[in-house]
């Protein structure tokens, strides 16, 4: 079941592995912003060049990336077709009822596909070079400013890290429940959608029961050990911003600025 995770963390020692997570996440956000602002040919060129660099510096297996992009092709096709047919344009090539095929629409479609493809590659690289715990600590650092609008940041960080720790256990649990019900004769290959939907009940109810049971046990254990809230928690040792991380932020900020200007 784990196989479906395309961007699963692969331990390594590449340049990207070594950027501290909070800086990497921040850079990631900058790249997303840059992608959204990209709209000229030069801008696209810069974006592609940047993406290639990122992939090369991360030692990510190229086939994996190609596969994940290939898997998205039908989705891309749908986006492209939708945009080319439904874009309201003044000089359509072909018009029928509410369908308007236009050059602008096609360009718009390509734009969207390009952006999504870049974001998929970059986020794949991000998750492949950052451990989940790393991502967690990065998110925790980045949401700290929210404290000023009275968001209980420590509580949120605790919930997120518990959620991530639960994922492998729950995957295993769900796999087990699925197999147990299949062995009891549960079927999912029905032709009718509604029947197939109902066939999920024997999976979902036990999964909720067992995960809530785990939640109950964990919260009782936490309370019995005197846990009353995340406030008093000892903060994790902060990773200081090293040169590599600062450089990554600067590079991404520069890219973002470039895309905004041109």
């Amino acid at each position: 079941m784990m196989r479906q995770m395309a961007g699963r963390y692969i331990p390594g020692d590449s340049v990207l592995h070594n950027i501290i997570p909070s800086a990497k996440l921040f850079s990631f956000i900058l790249i997303i912003a840059a992608v959204i602002f990209t709209n000229t040919v030069v801008g696209y060129g810069a974006m592609v060049a940047f993406t290639v660099c990122v992939v090369l510096y991360s030692n990510t297996p190229i086939e994996g990336l190609i596969k994940s992009i290939a898997g998205m092709l039908p989705f891309f096709a749908v986006i492209f077709v939708m945009n080319s047919l439904f874009y309201s344009s003044d000089n359509p090539i072909w018009k029928f009822w509410f369908i308007t095929l236009s050059k602008e629409g096609m360009i718009q479609g390509l734009n969207v596909v390009f952006r999504i493809a870049i974001i998929i590659i970059i986020s794949g690289v991000l998750t492949q070079t950052t451990s989940t715990m790393g991502l967690m600590s990065g998110i925790e650092t980045l949401i700290k400013p929210l404290k000023y609008i009275r968001v209980p940041v420590e509580e949120v960080a605790m919930i997120l890290s518990v959620a991530l720790q639960f994922i492998p256990t729950l995957i295993e649990e769900s796999d087990k429940i699925k197999k147990a019900q299949i062995a009891r004769g549960a079927r999912f290959e029905s032709e009718k959608l509604s029947e197939r939907a109902m066939a999920m009940l024997p999976m979902i109810v036990p999964l909720f029961l067992s995960s809530f049971k785990r939640a109950d046990e964990l919260s009782m254990a936490m309370e019995s050990r005197g846990y009353r809230g995340a406030k008093g928690r000892t903060p994790k040792a902060r990773e200081s911003l090293d040169r590599l991380s600062v450089m990554s932020i600067i590079a991404c900020a520069a890219l973002c600025a470039l895309e905004v200007i041109i």
Binding site: M1, Q4, E155, M158, I159, L160, V162, A163, L164, F166, I167, L170, I171, S174, K178, M200, M203, I204, L207, F208, S211, F212, R214, A215, D216, L218, S219, M220, M222, E223, Y227, R228, G229
Partner: peptide, 21 residues
């Protein structure tokens, strides 16, 4: 509130796990 937090964490994890089904 601790229990609510943990249930919330479990639900977040399930947002990822259930679609795998």
């Amino acid at each position: 509130s601790v229990k609510k937090s943990i249930i919330c964490a479990v639900c977040i994890a399930l947002c990822y796990v259930i679609p795998l089904f």
